[in-house]
Design a protein around this nucleic acid. Structure first.
Length: 469
RNA sequence: UCCCGAGUAGCGCAGCGGUAGCGCAGGUGACUGUUAAUCACUUGGUCGUAAGUUCGAAUCUUACCUCGGGAGCCA
């Protein structure tokens, strides 16, 4: 007999059908009338289905009455209209087969409120809770939406490498990748200035290698051949960041578009976010209702508002003007040329406009070397999409496609152009204007669900001092 | 990494110098087409770790560890 999932059984169309279900017990309620109610969940949806187990079952006394929360069972029975309140259908069990008990004395999850911190310490069991089941389903929907968005627009999905040899991809501290015995690392012998340095020529790749901090530079290679591409994979930052918005291992989506300027980049980012939010609301209705009710009472309203309205677009210079004139007291004073602080971004997106804000044309000194220099010589074609609570959810730019300008910028940033010979080749041979951005998957899940800590929107978070499971 | 705050029963918390408490969960019993069921009784704790002050420390001091909030870095 083919297995049915709980979400199907909850539909009234299932009434009258005989089904086989399997899942985990959420709770059992006994009636002295000679039967028990079992709430069964299999992760297919938020809700559990109520199983009616009568005393007539051969294993009622011996097994059914011992079923506690967390036990796994297989049920065969008829879907019937429920006479009770709270559900429209239920399953009248013909048989209840116990697959595995969960000892209520030691099973950590019980019918009660539990903190996110505690659940994080039992990451192997937390997907069995309503909250983490819903997070998993919404995260999955977001991933599907990301692929759908780009695939339907003709973007090619490019798998860029996890292990990289380019030393300065731009952002942040990198994790080292090596097969050296750390107790006995080979050193360069002989005479000369390099004597005593680590001899990476003896390492696995014959040179120093790291975990990637971005697939952008590689994506640019494919965009300048195939026009529109995107990467979507894990990214690593060895920063000692201890916040609710940072992970050492996180997933990032990075589209890269040839023949595209910053305007097109911003438009793509806006359409992209709206599509994701819309898909989640359409396809994860009950999960989103749960988040709206139990996690953050404003998420649904906020998402609807965003989908229905245009993002605010202001230049960095305008943003600084607004911040200077707003009368708000900031811990960090505002002046043209500074990087916007969290409190400044929050003011813009949470107080002033109350929706996503795209800030563009930042001072060149606070942005990466590859961003296209404006004619004013002071600013670059960079853009950040800021959203309430989470802050920067997307960072992007139009790339510098002029070889001479790019080389100058690299030198100004103390980078050796020879190290980037292949990156420069893209400008030397058939260069084109192009642009792209990076979207943090976890920050998107955070924003959509209202979950307060980024460690609770990825199954197994990696952060400083945290690599369990 | 910096600034605050917190670590007490399986979980959520109170106690803040004088022999460790409450709620929930667990166990037992009662009751019921129940639904976070309800009611009664009940098991359960080297008070984060290490040192110190004191006649006496969960309570005061110091260091360390972990967690949370904020900041920096950023996605």
């Amino acid at each position: 007999m083919k297995q049915t999932r709980v979400h199907q059984v909850l539909q009234t169309e299932s009434i009258g059908k005989k089904v086989k279900l399997a899942g985990w017990v959420r709770t059992r309620r006994d009636s002295k009338g000679g039967f028990s109610f079992i709430e069964l969940n299999d992760g297919s949806c938020m809700k559990s289905v109520q199983i009616l187990a009568e005393a007539a079952l051969s294993n009622y006394e011996s097994e059914v009455l011992k079923l506690g929360i967390g036990s796994s069972i297989e049920v065969i029975g008829d879907v019937v209209e429920s006479p009770g309140k709270g559900q429209t259908t239920e399953v009248k069990a013909e048989s209840v087969k116990v697959l595995g008990y969960a000892d209520p004395q030691t099973y950590p999850l019980q019918k009660k409120g539990t903190s996110m911190e505690f659940l994080r310490s039992i990451a192997h069991l937390r997907p069995r809770t309503n909250t983490f089941g819903a997070v998993a389903r919404v995260r999955n929907e977001i991933c599907r939406s990301i692929h759908n968005f780009f695939q339907s627009r003709g973007f090619l999905y490019i798998n860029t490498p996890i292990i990289t040899a380019s030393d300065c991809e731009g952002a942040g501290q990198m994790f080292n990748v090596t097969t050296f015995d750390l107790k006995d690392v080979p050193r360069i012998s002989g005479e000369g200035g390099a004597k005593g340095d680590i001899d990476f020529e003896q390492d696995f790749f014959g040179r120093a290698t790291h975990l990637t901090v971005s697939g952008q530079l590689e994506a640019e290679i494919y965009a300048t051949a195939l026009t529109n591409v995107y990467t979507f994979g894990p990214t690593f930052r060895a920063e000692n960041s201890n916040t609710s918005r940072h992970l050492a291992e996180f997933w990032m989506v990075e589209p890269e578009m040839a023949f595209c300027d910053l305007e097109g980049d911003m438009q793509c980012a806006e359409d992209f976010l709206k599509t994701i939010f819309n898909d989640v609301m359409t396809n994860c209705g009950s999960d989103m209702e749960f988040f709206n009710e139990r996690i953050d009472k404003t998420v649904l309203e906020t998402l609807k508002h965003i989908v229905d309205s245009d993002f605010v677009r202001i230049s960095y210079t305008e943003a600084v003007d607004i911040l200077l004139k707003c009368g708000e007291k900031f811990e960090f004073p505002v002046s043209w040329g500074i990087d916007l602080q969290s409190e400044h971004e929050r003011y813009l997106t949470e107080k002033k406009f109350k929706k996503p804000v795209i800030v563009y044309d930042y001072p060149k000194d606070i942005k990466a070397f590859y961003m296209r220099l404006n004619d004013d010589g002071k600013t670059v074609r960079a853009m950040d999409v800021l959203v309430p609570k989470v802050g920067e959810i997307i960072g992007g730019s139009q790339r510098e496609e002029r070889l001479d300008v790019l080389i100058e910028r690299m030198k100004a940033c103390d980078l050796d152009p020879e190290e980037y010979w292949w990156y420069l080749d893209l400008r030397k041979f058939g260069t084109v204007p192009h642009a792209g951005f990076g979207l943090g998957l976890e920050r998107t899940v955070q924003f959509v669900t209202g979950m307060g800590n980024i460690r609770d929107v990825i199954p197994f978070p990696r952060a400083p001092k945290t690599a369990d499971f």
